[in-house]
Design a protein around this nucleic acid. Structure first.
Length: 585
RNA sequence: GGGGUCGUGGUGCAGCUGGUUAGCACAUCGGCCUGUCAAGCCGAAGGUCGCGGGUUCGAGCCCCGUCGGCCCCGCCA
């Protein structure tokens, strides 16, 4: 490198005309006219056009340049001729007339074009991730990610929070997701676990008196992947002392308002709406409803059960529910379209999907005959349906019905264009159940985690009626995506013990797994609670991406491998021996 | 663990109900061209269709298996 860079590729403008500059970067595009040659020089900050004239000393060498070569140009900033300015380019008013050129590194022809609109398939992109990351879109995503991370740090610091690091090598926790294990060399046969979240540590930090903690921290869960799930992902982890739900909501709403303002220039209304878990399930069939559109589920069991619609009457008598959604303007759906939707529903386990057209104040179609005039009116009223709408009705077990209608609700919203893509809809979902029955484990498990406080008025039901105990737990839902979740924690040891009892974790087991926390709770634990944001998911939404892989520099594939470096891989036998491990095939 | 979908020159795609030399664009290489901005024009090289097996006179196309990408269910306190 012969020279010092004076400017980056996005810095120059007509302010710099006549200045002598040195630019360094990658060749994004070469336009050789036989005489004059134009090079678009690219770096993180932008693109600057280099002009190489036939009479230039570097002309012959410049002819050899190819895409993605790394080069340095010395030259003079000139105004582009009248009519040759490029308004799409920040540096479009100027160009650099090259006087000297140094090839810093020639490059092989890249496996895909970095500077093109056609994006390579994802496996190729992942294999050559360092090239994929050169693309503008990926650069923008990671720059956005950085900006939000900085915002988060600034915001919480201003609010009196401390960023404190917690261990990555920790004790394996039995509840929840599968742990990634790390074998101990010094303690043969023993293992560390990578944290699924710093949950217990942040509670201990509250007990230690730090009062307000946050951390942007990596978490690890050995579960199957999805578009919004990676085996390692990043959380904004937060915990606060001497607070209740309101305090936490206020701080988090402040954070979201600021992030949305400073990234997307969106002013969000506060306080955010709240909906109970029960209501969410009833009205939307989901604990993370997308509220960018309405389209509520309506339970019509009480109307249908008096009709002559035998299948549905029987369903209600069998303890199932009959519910549906009203798809606006869909009365024109053909027989085939209806059948396809029914097949779609059956594929998801429904016994069927009944379509009922709405006429002028009456029901139409083959199902209409089962309803009296009065029942028909009641149906129309329940759905707030209008002429030309179509009801889609499902009659199955409560949870299944809701689940299918929840999916149908989203599917229809997409088809009918009911979703305003620009809108950011934030909602708190509150009053989650504390427990959930696990058929596999034949016991109750914590829906959130075993340190979640019950609602005080439900506390006595913990052992007698676990099903109906509500938790002081809350999720923040953004456009149908769970982006944060948290709870007020148990800060009293006797409640914590009751929790383990309800989960059928024996005192001995509780002692061995969580003894340190139980012990800590004895020594003056302040009331505390917190929340954690899925940082990748948040960035994904802000960036308008469909997958968190696009906002993570080096993500894994859906089968948890890294196509670039080949992880996971087999290891040297000596490494295994040292750890006292033997592979069983 | 299960379901779906995709897999064709370096890259992105096309390839009709199976039928002769597998097309197109970009990239690559060579030539021409002094104002482009994803430059243009002319030309060349480059694939046996992820892999294995089967059906057939004949398979990129059909069937089975397998590997890989992606999406979903289960799973994810």
């Amino acid at each position: 490198m012969k020279w010092k860079r004076t400017h980056n590729c996005g810095a120059l403008s007509s302010q710099n005309i006549d200045q002598h500059v040195v630019l360094m970067g990658w060749v994004a595009s070469r336009r050789d006219h036989g005489g004059i040659i134009f090079i678009d020089l690219r770096d993180r900050w932008g693109l600057t056009q280099i002009n190489i004239r036939p009479e230039s000393a570097v002309y012959e060498e410049a002819k050899k340049l190819r895409n993605e070569w790394v080069v340095a140009f010395k030259g003079v900033v000139e105004s582009r001729p009248e009519g040759m300015m490029n308004k799409n380019l920040a540096t479009g008013e100027i160009e650099v007339l090259a006087t000297e050129l140094e090839v810093l590194n020639a490059a092989s022809a890249p496996p895909f074009n970095v500077f093109a609109e056609n994006v390579a398939s994802e496996d190729i992109r992942l294999k050559y991730r360092y090239l994929d990351l050169r693309r503008q879109e990926m650069q923008d995503n990671l720059i956005l990610r950085h900006r939000v991370a900085q915002l988060v740090r600034t915001y919480f610091s201003e609010q009196g929070f401390l960023e404190i690091e917690t261990p990555f090598l920790m004790k394996s926790t039995p509840e929840g997701a599968r742990d990634f294990l790390v074998p101990s060399r010094l303690w043969r046969g023993k293992f560390y676990a990578l944290p699924q979240s710093p949950q217990t540590y942040k509670q201990l930090l509250m007990i230690a008196g730090f009062d307000r903690y946050f951390q942007i921290v990596r978490c690890f869960r050995d579960e199957d992947l999805r578009a919004d799930r990676q085996p390692e992902f990043t959380q904004i982890d937060i915990e606060m002392s001497f607070v209740d739900e309101e305090d936490i909501f206020e701080i988090m709403e402040g954070l979201m308002a600021r992030v949305l303002r400073e990234t997307l220039d969106i002013e969000i209304e506060r306080p955010f709406p709240r909906i109970s878990y029960d209501e969410a399930m009833r009205q939307y069939g989901s604990d993370r409803p997308d509220l960018r559109f309405v389209l509520k589920l309506v339970d019509v069991s009480n109307i249908v059960k008096f009709s002559d619609f035998n299948i549905l009457v029987q369903a209600v008598h069998a303890g199932k529910i009959v519910a549906g959604i009203c798809a606006p303007g869909c009365a024109g759906y053909s027989r085939k379209q209806q059948d396809d939707l029914a097949a779609w529903a059956r594929q998801r386990g429904a016994s069927g999907l009944i379509a009922i057209k709405i006429g002028a104040g009456v029901l139409e179609g083959s199902a209409a005959k089962f309803f009296t005039e009065e029942q028909a009116r009641a149906m129309i009223e329940a759905f707030d349906a209008r002429e030309g709408d179509m009801l889609f009705i499902c009659g199955d077990e409560r949870d299944l019905t809701r689940q299918i209608l929840a999916e149908l609700r989203i599917e229809m919203a997409k088809r009918l264009g009911l979703i305003d893509e620009k809108r950011m809809s934030l909602t708190w979902v509150v009053d989650f159940p504390l427990f959930e029955w696990s058929p596999e484990r034949d016991r109750y498990v914590a829906l959130h985690h075993p340190f979640t406080s019950p609602l005080p008025q439900d506390e006595e039901k913990m052992t007698t009626d676990p099903e109906h105990v509500r938790a002081r737990a809350y999720d923040l839902v953004l456009n149908g995506l769970e982006i944060a979740g948290g709870s007020i924690r148990i800060s009293q040891q006797h409640v914590q013990q009751k929790m383990f009892e309800a989960l059928r974790i024996s005192p001995a087991e509780a002692e061995s797994k969580f003894g340190f926390l139980l012990e800590a709770l004895k020594y003056g634990a302040p009331p505390h609670g917190g929340i954690a944001f899925g940082f990748d998911r948040l960035i994904m939404v802000l960036a308008g991406c469909q997958s968190i892989r696009d906002v993570i520099a080096f993500p894994k594939t859906a089968s948890a491998t890294s196509l670039m470096d080949g992880a996971p891989s087999e290891v040297d036998i000596d490494q295994l021996i040292e750890l006292g491990l033997q592979i069983k095939k």
